[in-house]
Nucleic acid binder design. Structure first.
Lengths: 155, 155
DNA sequence: ATGAGTGCAAAGGCTTTGCATTAGG
DNA sequence: CCTAATGCAAAGCCTTTGCACTCAT
């Protein structure tokens, strides 16, 4: 908890492995080859991947191991489970690695891509959300924002 | 499509039944007692309901009928399936009935409530999203925004 | 060697579907 | 009446879990 700064600055690509190893170590978990392969897939993708996509990118990885490893990585705070539609769950690296961002979801093919909006908009948004949340006695941790539409492939 | 205005103004409670009946009729579906009961549950709740909650509020409704009716109502554009976590799906009336709003999701108990933020923030947000989306060749239909945090019951 | 991690297969849990029955127009 | 809608039960599909084997420390 003390070793890693969680600012809006993202972790450099080369340091991701080290960062993940540290986070795993903090909860007494090993950084095995399978987990390394998963993290590399997610790093290369720059968008949330589904289990089938992860398995395709990682030869010799059992589906159950993928689920189990992703759960461990999620507990370590390295991976986040993203719920887009009701199909497959998707997984991405946490925002202290990738930086804060949002998702564009294609309502036709289900494709998901990362997007970022100006900090000024983020701040105004957070201020407005914080206000309405606390008015309802709700302690806001963060927000989740998606663009829903049609991707260039499906137009 | 010509009969119902889809402005930011919501439909009056008393007219919901008529509105739903019209929408169903447009796709050749009947407004049966079961579907009426479901719509009434959703109207009363003023927040997205899960299948168990809907069944609890509607005696004598089979689970499969609930799923089927909700799918029909979704096709009619009257109901929206809300994806919050990976547990149960939740359903709510569409925004041309309820007006545009967002959700607060409790990360502890999973409770979901509606929230609204000022139009000015909505507009700035849409402008920013539209901009980054079109830059990626993506045609935005709408946005989806949730507050994630801890509700007053779980603090 | 010694417990964690993995693979394979089976079980779980939400959702969908098949078929006979009921009800709406 | 006659087709659409419903109930019940079985099947589907993503995800989780049990158990034996393998690998890292």
């Amino acid at each position: 908890m003390a070793s890693t700064k969680t600012t809006h600055q993202h972790v450099e690509a080369a340091d991701i492995a080290h960062h993940v190893a540290t986070k795993l170590d903090e909860i007494g978990q090993r950084f095995t080859s399978g987990r390394r392969a998963i993290v590399e897939s997610l790093t290369g993708a720059k968008r949330p991947l589904s289990i089938p996509e992860i398995l395709e990118a990682t030869t010799g990885l059992a589906q159950s191991s993928a689920y189990r490893s992703l759960t461990v990585l999620e507990s370590a705070g390295v991976v986040v489970r993203v719920i887009t539609t009701d199909e497959w769950a998707r997984f991405e690296l946490s925002e202290d690695i990738t930086g804060h961002h949002h998702h564009m979801v294609c309502s036709v093919c289900g494709a998901v891509d990362d997007v970022r909006i100006p900090d000024s908009v983020e701040h105004e948004l957070d201020a407005a959300l914080m206000k309405v949340a606390s008015k309802a006695g709700f302690v806001m941790a963060h927000h989740r924002l998606d663009v829903v539409g049609v991707c260039k492939e499906c137009i």
